[in-house]
């Protein structure tokens, strides 16, 4: 009987959470799957069409272009973020006088609204008076038409994303570094290895689980990138920087909920598969309980 009473109590405690999540996450997700099976365009009568929207995806060149971008963008930006994030974390893990302030400062790009970051970078990429080209000019390099060329626009987005999220990666990695006991290093120092060797031989293997967690978080987040692109390139030039999130949004904006939902379902499945792969390959255990 005691078990029964405890169960009822637990039910009361988790009920609000379950209600909120059911109504505003689970229901919409199921709704999106359901809507993707319909022809559902504003001002046109609705019709159940089965998998027709999915068939339409196959021959939709812009869809494939967006999918390509959605996979390539995380690959490049997350790699760079991990590299810079590790540098940040190693520096911030040292003991020094203004460490607290430097940690605070390094949080700034991540803490400010992503839209603000996007606006700043949009201005930095201005061809005529943007900071990026002024910087290149200082070294005698010709100005780049950042947002007007495919490669320029892609690099511009990667750079802006790296700026914004490196602090986040750094925080996660820093937490990992802090779990490495100092006496391990003392021992290695006696053995005569230098700090670069120590990093690759001792530190990195020890914090591998948390590196994988950082990778998982960042990849999943970069795959759904929307804010930066909405402001900086608007998906251009010629649609080459349109992510699946933005592509789906454009259909919602036009009132085409059926096809927009179909695109969203694909993005959902892609992130689902990637998350599962990380969890399987990285052997992320539910160390939560």
């Amino acid at each position: 009987m005691k078990v029964n009473r405890e169960f009822k109590e637990a039910l009361l405690f988790v009920a609000p959470l379950v209600i909120f999540i059911s109504f505003f996450i689970l229901l919409p997700i199921c709704g999106t799957f359901w809507t993707s099976l319909w022809q559902d365009v504003a001002f046109i009568s609705k019709k159940f069409i089965g998998l027709e929207n999915y068939v339409r995806l196959l021959s939709d060149r812009h869809f494939w272009q967006s999918t390509y971008f959605t996979l390539l963008f995380p690959l490049i930006s997350v790699s760079l973020e991990m590299f810079f994030g590790m540098i940040f974390a190693l520096v911030l893990n040292e003991t020094f006088r203004f460490r607290g302030i430097l940690r605070g400062i390094s949080l700034i790009p991540w803490a400010i609204p992503s839209i603000v970051g996007a606006r700043i970078w949009q201005l930095i990429y201005r061809y005529d008076y943007g900071l990026a080209n002024l910087f290149l000019k200082m070294f005698g390099i010709q100005s780049i038409n950042w947002l007007g060329s495919p490669v320029g626009a892609f690099s511009a987005l990667v750079l802006a994303d790296v700026w914004r999220t490196t602090p986040f990666v750094a925080i996660i990695l820093l937490a990992g570094l802090q779990t490495v006991p100092n006496d391990i290093y003392d021992q290695a120092q006696v053995d005569g290895s230098n700090f670069v060797q120590r990093f690759f031989k001792i530190t990195l293997p020890l914090i591998k689980p948390i590196v994988i967690i950082a990778l998982l978080f960042r990849t999943i987040d970069a795959i759904r990138v929307f804010d930066l692109i909405y402001v900086i390139t608007e998906g251009g030039p010629g649609g080459v920087t349109t992510s699946l999130s933005l592509y789906g949004y454009k259909f919602f904006l036009l009132g085409d909920f059926g096809y927009g939902s179909t695109v969203s379902v694909i993005l959902f499945l892609i992130s689902f598969i990637i998350a599962l792969t990380y969890i399987k390959v990285g052997r992320i255990r539910t160390s939560i309980l």
């Binding site: 919409p28 997700i29 999130s245 969203s264 992130s271």
Partner: peptide
Amino acid sequence: MFPQISIVGY
């Protein structure tokens, strides 16, 4: 981990 876009339409 869900993408927001797969929720926002519905």
